Deep mutational scan, measured.
Amino acid sequence: GSLMYASIFGNVSAIIQRLYSGTARYHTQMLRVREFIRFHQIPNPLRQRLEEYFQHAWSYTNGIDMNAVLKGFPECLQADICLHLNRSLLQHCKPFRGATKGCLRALAMKFKTTHAPPGDTLVHAGDLLTALYFISRGSIEILRGDVVVAILGKNDIFGEPLNLYARPGKSNGDVRALTYCDLHKIHRDDLLEVLDMYPEFSDHFWSSLEITFNLRDTNMIPGSPGSTELEGGFSRQRKRKLSFRRRTDKDTEQPGEVSALGPGRAGAGPSSRGRPGGPWGESPSSGPSSPESSEDEGPGRSSSPLRLVPFSSPRPPGEPPGGEPLMEDCEKSSDTCNPLSGAFSGVSNIFSFWGDSRGRQYQELPRCPAPTPSLLNIPLSSPGRRPRGDVESRLDALQRQLNRLETRLSADMATVLQLLQRQMTLVPPAYSAVTTPGPGPTSTSPLLPVSPLPTLTLDSLSQVSQFMACEELPPGAPELPQEGPTRRLSLPGQLGALTSQPLHRHGSDPGS
C-alpha cells in the first residue's frame, strides 16, 4: 500500500510541476520586462504597450523563439521550412505564380514574418522605404497627419515599386495596425538579389506586381527641396563636378596662354591676372594647382613670374625650331616645348642647366612650328573623362623618358669634360720664339709635331656638333674642335714665318 501511495504521489506532483513550468517561465520573463521598464524609466503609455505586446506574443508563440529554433537546422532544411511557412503567400499572390521551385525557395529564405499588435506603428512618415510588405492577416491604416487616407487588409501590398527607383524613397505617411496583424516583408536588397539570379522571372514579377498603396513621397523628385535634403551631399558634389568641367572646357578654348597655377587659371584673360583667384576666387580649394602655386600668395601677385606667355621676339635665322618633346602628345598638341628640351639645344645650356634650372624654367623657349593648343594648358582630366590607368601609364612613360634624357646628358657632359682635359694635357705650358741651342744640326726643328685630335665617332658628340652648327654659343662658352686643319689655341699665330727665318745662335768662333 505504501508503494502504491508513493507512486501516485510522485506522478501527481510531476504533472503539477509540468503544468506550472510554463507559468514560471512566463513570470520570469515578465519580471525581466518590468525590470527593464523600471531601469530605463519608460513612461506609462509606452510601458503599457510593452506589457501588452509581451503578453500577446507569449500567448501567440508560447514563449518560443522561432528564429532561434529555425537557425538550429541546416540551410537546406531551413529553405523547406521557410517554404512551408510562406506557402499561403507564395501560392495566392499573383506576382509569385509561375516561378520555379528554386526561385520560390530563394524568396522564402528572404521573407521575414512580423507580428504587430493593435496601435503599433510599422512605418513612420519620413522613414526610408527599405522593404516591401505583404499583409497575411489583420488590417492596417495609413495616416497623413491625423487623416486616415487608406485601410488595407489581407493580401494587400504596400511599399514602393523598387524597379522604378535606384534609391529608396521616404514614406509619405504613417502605417498603423488596427488589429493583430501578420506581415511578410522582404528587404529591398534581398528581393533585387533574387531577381538578379532569376532574370526570366524578374520581368514577370515586375509586370504582375500591383502595389495597393504606394508609400513613396511624390514630392521626392529631382530638383525638389525634399530631394535635395535626401541627396544633399551627392547633389552638391555633382554640381561641383559639372562646374569644374564647364570651366576646364572654357580653358581649352584659349591656347595662347600657358599658366603654371593649374587648370583653373589657364583660361583667365590678361585683365584677371591681378585678381586673387581668377574664376576660382569664390572657392580657392575647388581646383588643383601645381607646386608653384604656393608662391602666388606673396605680395606682387600681378607681377609674379609664374604666369607664362609666349615671347614675341624673333628667332635667329640659324636657330632650330626646338628640341624633341618629352611626351608623344607634344608633337601634336603643344605650341611651347618643355623646359628640359631647351637644355639640349647647345653645349652652353648643358654647362648651365643644373646651376640655374629654376631660373631657366621661365626663360624664352623655342617654339614648335605648329600653332596647336598648349601642352601645359590642357586641363586636368576628371576620373569620369580619362581612366586612372591611362594617366598612370603616361606618367610612367614620361618618367622613363626623363631617365633616358638624364643618362644621355650625363654621358655627353662626361665626354666633353674628358676631351677638354685631354686638350689641356697635350698642350705645353708655354712657348717662346727663341729656342735653346741643340747639340747638333738636327735641332733646327722649332717644335715637335703635334698629332691632331682623333675624329669623334660617338653619337652623342655628333649631336653636340649638330647643335653647335645651329645654335649661337654665348661669349663665355668653350669652343669644341671642328672639322678641318686643327691648330692649338695656345700656339702663336705666325708659326709659318718662324720656319722661314734663320735661327740666331749665340757662340764663340775658336779662330777669332
Rank of each mutant, 00 (worst) to 15 (best):
D127P: 02
D127M: 01
L128S: 11
T130K: 09
I135S: 01
R137I: 04
R137F: 07
S139D: 04
I140S: 01
V149Y: 09
A150C: 08
L152W: 01
G153N: 09
K154I: 04
N155V: 03
L162V: 10
R167H: 15
V175C: 11
R176T: 06
T179L: 02
C181L: 05
C181W: 01
R188C: 08
D189I: 07
D189F: 04
D190K: 01
V194C: 08
L195W: 03
L195S: 05
Y198Q: 03
Y198T: 01
P199Y: 02
F201N: 06
F201R: 02
F201I: 08
D203N: 11
W206C: 07
S208P: 01
E210V: 09
T212V: 04
N214Q: 01
R216W: 01
G233I: 13
Q237E: 10
Q237I: 11
R240N: 07
K241V: 14
R246E: 15
D251Y: 12
E253M: 06
E253I: 12
Q254F: 12
Q254K: 08
P255T: 10
G256V: 08
V258D: 10
A260N: 11
A266L: 12
G267E: 10
G267W: 07
S271G: 12
S286M: 15
P291V: 05
R301N: 15
S303V: 06
S304H: 01
P316V: 08
E319T: 14
G322T: 14
E328D: 04
K332Q: 09
S333I: 13
S334V: 12
T336K: 06
N338Y: 10
A343N: 08
A343K: 09
V347D: 07
F351K: 04
F351V: 10
F351N: 12
R358C: 04
G359K: 07
Q361K: 05
Y362M: 08
L365F: 05
P371L: 09
T372K: 07
N377E: 04
P379I: 03
L380I: 13
R388V: 15
D396S: 08
A397F: 13
Q399L: 11
Q399S: 13
Q399H: 01
Q401G: 07
E406P: 03
T407C: 13
A411H: 15
D412P: 03
A414D: 12
A414R: 08
T415Y: 01
V416D: 08
L417C: 04
Q418M: 11
L420E: 06
R422L: 06
R422S: 06
Q423C: 09
M424Y: 11
T425W: 14
P428Q: 10
Y431I: 12
A433M: 10
V434T: 09
T436I: 11
G438Q: 04
G438T: 05
T442Y: 10
S443Q: 11
S445M: 12
L448V: 07
L448E: 08
T455Y: 05
T457C: 12
T457E: 12
L458F: 12
S462Y: 09
Q463Y: 13
M468D: 15
M468Y: 13
E471W: 11
G476Y: 04
A477H: 09
L495C: 12
S500W: 11
Q501M: 13
R505Q: 10
S508T: 05
D509V: 13
G511L: 04
G511I: 14
